[in-house]
Design a protein around this nucleic acid. Structure first.
Lengths: 130, 130, 130, 130
DNA sequence: GTGGTCTAGACCACA
DNA sequence: GTGGTCTAGACCACG
């Protein structure tokens, strides 16, 4: 699993790190119960601040992606991720709405966006027609 | 056109305002060349500072959604929005990837997400072409 | 003489109008002692506010390009323009410096800029090798 | 690098500041990747408000001269400046036209203006290629 | 009456 | 300590 961060992005490092880990879990590169690098280790590897990794881990635990043991470090949640409740879905729709509105303003066809979404599912290894 | 802001959100007010305006343009509630409220007027209506509105307007002008005129105020860009270049599409994919990854972790089916996207197109009034 | 204004520009209308008139004088389209349209007439022709034309005329008189008679209206200054004093030249250099600095940052060769300047002299009808 | 502002000028302070920084980059006083003072530091040094400095920095980032990082502050763009596209050159010509027209009206010889331009290139340290 | 500019001061997110 | 955000209020340029 490669973690690629863009230090010039306006997206906070810890957010990028969270995304990378979530992508890793989605792809199956990080399996349930798999152990993640220690905060110290990962921070050193990526060349970022220890607190930044810690913040990402903490929030991922908060959201149900990880379980952090004081001694054993962080492991991927046995269930592979938090469950989708109504609140989450509502928030997702709120997130997608301005993105979709933007594509409409820019005359991007619905079909093209749907294709992009399907490609992302393929890229992330969830390509089954479920 | 209704503008609904969430002052408790972690999304900046000016970002929410930008999204609302983009949604308005996508829906056709704001037509090309249509005049938007003055910064003072809108700020007063929403109950925020005029500089916050100004920031949203300025950025929307920068992105090609609006044209700001010193005397006439802000109008929707005659073209209804900026064109979609490669950079935009790349950025959109980068935006969608962690969202999609998240849905995968949460076991939301691809079909459901595609349905949500289609519903958003419908809601935003761009239901014509699949 | 055509007066072309860009109402979407961030340059004030009266400034654009001043420039157009100065360009007209430089080109010889407006000859010394030639009468300009009345404030009312020009404003109506261009479709702008009367005060805007008035402001441009006033400032051009102030700078020595025009002479405004209460009854006869505005005429081009008999000398064809104000004289170049030290203050003007100093100001011109101050105006050009950031423009030139910008071209350097953008890797535009000095030769290209000199060519552009020469072309402008040609376009404005002052092409002699004086 | 000295920053000299004229508070009585009709040119906005943030514009003057932008020019000074661009000149600094052109001269090579500000090298690519070099760090600029923090907005607070510079504002304090010059005696202006930090928002004014921020505005200048932001616009310079937008134009490709700087990169602003939340923690590291602002640095000169690694490339030393944005590239020159057609739009930029067209705008530059539009900027120069009224300036040149003015010199013609004032009987300043073309040769003198060309000399001034050459001197500016010399002053700004880009004297190499004619 | 419109946006543009500038100042001032506050709190927050980030690393 | 850095920039980001938001508020507040003032004066000005423009037309």
């Amino acid at each position: 699993m490669f973690i690629q961060l863009n230090f010039n992005s306006d997206i906070p490092i810890y957010e990028q790190l969270k995304s990378e880990i979530i992508i890793g879990i989605a792809k199956g590169e990080l399996l349930p119960e798999e152990r993640l690098p220690s905060v110290r280790q990962l921070a050193s590897d990526i060349g970022i601040n220890l607190h930044t990794v810690n913040k990402a881990y903490k929030q991922l635990e908060e959201e149900g992606f990880l379980i952090i043991h004081r001694q054993r470090g962080a492991i991927v949640h046995p269930d592979g991720g938090p469950k989708a409740d109504h609140a989450y879905k509502r928030k997702m729709v709120e997130t997608l709405r301005p993105i979709i509105a933007n594509t409409i303003c820019r005359d991007i066809k619905k079909a093209e966006v749907l294709t992009i979404v399907r490609q992302l599912y393929k890229e992330l290894g969830a390509d089954s027609d479920e």
